[in-house]
Amino acid sequence: MKKLSARRRHPLAALVVLIFALAATGGLHAAFAPAGEAKADQSSSQSLAIEEGKRLYDVGCSSCHGTGGQGTSDGPSLVGVGSAAVDFQVGTGRMPAQQPGAQVPKKKKVYSEHEVDQLAAYVASLGSGPIKPTKSQYDPSGADIANGGQLFRSNCAQCHNFTGEGGALTHGKYAPSLSDVDPKHVYEAMQTGPQNMPSFPDKVMPEQEKRDIAAYLKTVNSKESDSPGGYKLGGIGPVVEGLFAWIFGLGVLILVAIWVAARTAKAKKS
């Protein structure tokens, strides 16, 4: 018995080794990394943001996503979803969710831009994932609109409709309308694949193609987009156009016919 316990390591030995190893790595990194003044500032403001983000997270998110972002039965794990996912979900008001259901809808956002960044910093610190894009990554100005249209029709139109008007999926799920969606959020959604949307990572759809798609959407489905063909009727396709023609077109003709026939041409009105 004594012999055995003499060979056994102390229970905390592993922890001590780990702390030494971490300290050594950190020390080496600090010694060799080119640590400029600005960089130090940034990293300290970054850790401050993570801290603030953690505080916000504990209050607003942890009840569903778990205290460490590991997920619960009410919400998925946030480890590795990245800051882009947080910026999309919280920035569009989808999170925090109002209620569980087939789909969490877009609504008025609750957190300020600054708070969203702090939350994103915290969630990004849980595991690496897609990073919130910078303006140069998603800015659609100058992108190839025609190519964007082609990409949109082959990759996105099946769910979001060919001009991004949205469409129904199964069991109450739906692909939301993309009217006037911020190009940043379009970019982040493709990057992260929110809810039931599949993701289109950079290796499958490079950054430039994402910008083309954002430019196409801005052209065909935003406040400044034109409708050269006339009244769009919601732009959701031939069914509504046919319905409009049959009900209103034919309906008006029938009403005119009734009106003509109902008025007598006789001199003596009876």
Binding site: N155, P198, S199, K203, V204, E209
Partner: peptide, 21 residues
């Protein structure tokens, strides 16, 4: 071949939850 980029695909290009043609 990836329809978007015309480049041959590698397994690591395709993540869980993504959709590629």
């Amino acid at each position: 071949v990836n329809e978007n980029t015309q480049q041959p695909l590698r397994p690591e290009d395709i993540g869980v939850g993504s959709l590629t043609f």
